[in-house]
Simulated scan of single mutants.
Amino acid sequence: MEVVILPGTKQIGALAADAIESLVRRKPNAVLGLATGSSPLPIYDELASRYEAGGLDFSQAHGFALDEYVGLEAGHPESYREVIRREFTNRVNIKPDNVHGPDGAAEDLEAACQAYEDAIKAVGGVDLQILGVGTDGHIGFNEPGSSLASRTRIKTLIEQTRKDNARFFDSIDDVPHHVVTQGLGTIMDARHVVLVATGAQKAQAVRDFVEGPVAAICAASILQMHPHATILVDEAAASSLKLADYYRHTYDNKPEWQGL
């Protein structure tokens, strides 16, 4: 796990976009894992700007969303399919048929979950997975207590997550209780994971999953076991890290050839 502490969201978005641009240039049919929420937005803004400047081509790439609410009608503005389209894929030239999301409206959710796992495997797996992290350490919608080996499945949201997400709805009563989410085992299959966390409200979660034990109570801690996990945080989110000075020193003196 590499922890990179940067001044703010602009620098974080640019560095993550550098990694994605490098991937897409060397592998035009790259498979990107796409997260929603506020954390990835600077990345999507930067990638859209680079596309608009004429230097970045997503026409052969694939995108797979992490999760989806259960029970929202098709086209609902807060469904994650729509959020991904609005915030990223409609702003670049990725083909609509190459953008995939779990089916939270399926009659047979168990079959839909397996179909999503199969779809990821059919394109060779995710090359780079973008992640945010919840205040309780969840990634995707793998809430505290999730199996560290879990695959795509239905999950019940804890009330804190519903409260955190209520800002996107008219009220908390409109936030669904259930989601379909990639599992921790699914996320761990990605060849490179880039997690973004910003703001003081994420400081405890960052400390817990970076420097605490690997445990189901903090789902993101499984990333300690990933062979290529990059954690991008601002100063506020890094404020509780015991080894913050070491992380800064390591990144400042990193050999250029290593990349991100």
Rank of each mutant, 00 (worst) to 15 (best):
F168S: 12
F168K: 10
F168Y: 15
F169E: 09
F169D: 09
D170E: 15
S171V: 13
S171Y: 13
I172R: 11
D174V: 08
V175I: 14
V175N: 05
P176D: 09
P176S: 08
P176N: 10
H177C: 12
H177I: 14
V179K: 07
V179T: 14
V180K: 10
V180W: 04
T181L: 06
Q182H: 06
Q182R: 05
G183W: 01
L184Y: 02
G185R: 07
G185N: 04
I187C: 04
M188T: 06
A190M: 08
A190C: 09
R191T: 12
H192G: 03
V193Y: 07
V193T: 08
V193Q: 02
V194R: 00
V194F: 06
A197L: 05
A197I: 04
T198P: 01
T198A: 06
G199I: 07
G199D: 04
G199V: 05
G199L: 08
A200F: 06
A200T: 12
Q201D: 14
K202L: 04
A203Q: 03
A203M: 01
A203R: 09
Q204L: 13
A205E: 08
R207T: 02
D208Q: 14
D208W: 14
F209K: 10
E211D: 08
P213C: 05
P213R: 06
P213G: 01
V214P: 13
V214T: 14
V214W: 06
A215E: 15
A215S: 15
A215H: 13
A216Y: 12
I217M: 15
I217H: 15
I217P: 12
I217Q: 15
C218D: 09
A220F: 03
A220Q: 07
S221P: 06
S221Y: 09
I222N: 05
I222W: 12
L223A: 06
Q224D: 03
Q224T: 09
Q224W: 06
Q224P: 13
M225C: 14
H226T: 09
H226M: 07
H226W: 11
H228T: 13
A229L: 09
A229P: 13
A229E: 08
T230N: 08
T230S: 11
T230Y: 11
I231Y: 04
I231A: 02
L232W: 06
V233M: 01
V233N: 00
V233C: 00
D234Q: 03
D234V: 03
D234T: 01
E235Y: 07
E235P: 02
A236L: 09
A236M: 03
A237E: 01
A237I: 04
A238Y: 01
A238K: 02
S239D: 00
S239P: 04
S239H: 00
S240D: 10
S240V: 09
S240K: 15
S240W: 11
L241C: 00
L243Y: 05
L243M: 10
L243F: 08
L243E: 05
A244P: 03
D245R: 10
D245L: 11
R248P: 05
R248V: 07
R248Q: 07
